[in-house]
Design a protein around this nucleic acid. Structure first.
Length: 211
DNA sequence: CTCCCGATAT
DNA sequence: ATATCAGGAG
């Protein structure tokens, strides 16, 4: 199957119809909690992140509280999420910067977010999109896999896929489409055993039955 | 490219 | 037993 512009539009329309009511799976009450939750979410399920952040923010709801708690205690607190030494070091360094340079608030500017330790392109896009309500497409493992399988956007790297998706999707739908792709990746177009048999995109998917 | 890393699904 | 999980840094 050759995936034309028209077929891409159909893919997007179906995704929007099926997943229109989806929202972020990560629990958060403000931009700071979202930022920490997304840093923790690397190579970890959202369910595990939510358990961890609920416990963490009960003890330390603000950047200064985490700084005061100290690195070893933070490591123990987030250990279940994996990669915990790197994540703890990055969260601690980020909190110190937020307190010292940004009045304990999460900056809204994308490039400023990118400079924070532990914050890469995916995390910065999630925060600008979800916390600050600006159009962005964060390419995580689900978005990367689903976009490539659909050939909605093909690329070897997350950045290539991000750029392809921005061309294929109207800007006003970027943030929503990001959620549609994630939920489709979680529920149907799974990494290991995709449920092609019950996929609403079967007719417009070039990878149908090939995984 | 490799390393970081525990929990979970298959 | 092993692949995968809302990645990022060196």
């Amino acid at each position: 199957m050759r995936v034309t512009k028209k077929i891409k539009a159909e893919q997007i329309a179906i995704l929007g119809q099926v997943y229109k009511d989806t929202k972020p799976a990560l629990k958060f009450r403000n931009p700071f909690e979202l930022l920490v939750a997304v840093i923790l979410s690397a190579q970890c399920t959202d369910v595990r992140v939510n358990i961890t952040t609920e416990r963490l923010f009960a003890k330390a709801p603000c950047p200064q509280d985490i700084v005061d708690m100290g690195l070893p205690a933070l490591e123990q607190e987030i250990k279940d999420c994996g990669l915990f030494r790197n994540k703890a070091k990055n969260i601690m360094a980020t909190c110190e910067i937020l307190v010292r340079e940004f009045d304990s608030k999460v900056p809204e500017d994308f490039d400023t977010l990118l400079k924070l330790p532990g914050v890469g392109r995916k995390t910065a896009n999630v925060v600008t999109s979800i916390a600050f309500d600006r159009p962005a497409i964060a390419v995580d493992t689900h978005v990367f896999r689903v976009a490539n399988r659909l050939k909605l956007a093909v690329g070897e790297t997350p950045l290539e896929v991000e750029e392809g998706l921005m061309k294929a999707i109207p800007k006003e739908l970027w943030s929503q489409a990001h959620h549609w792709l994630i939920w489709h990746g979680r529920r149907v177009c799974k990494a290991r055993r995709p449920l092609c048999g019950e996929c609403p995109l079967g007719e417009v998917c070039p990878s149908m039955g090939k995984a």
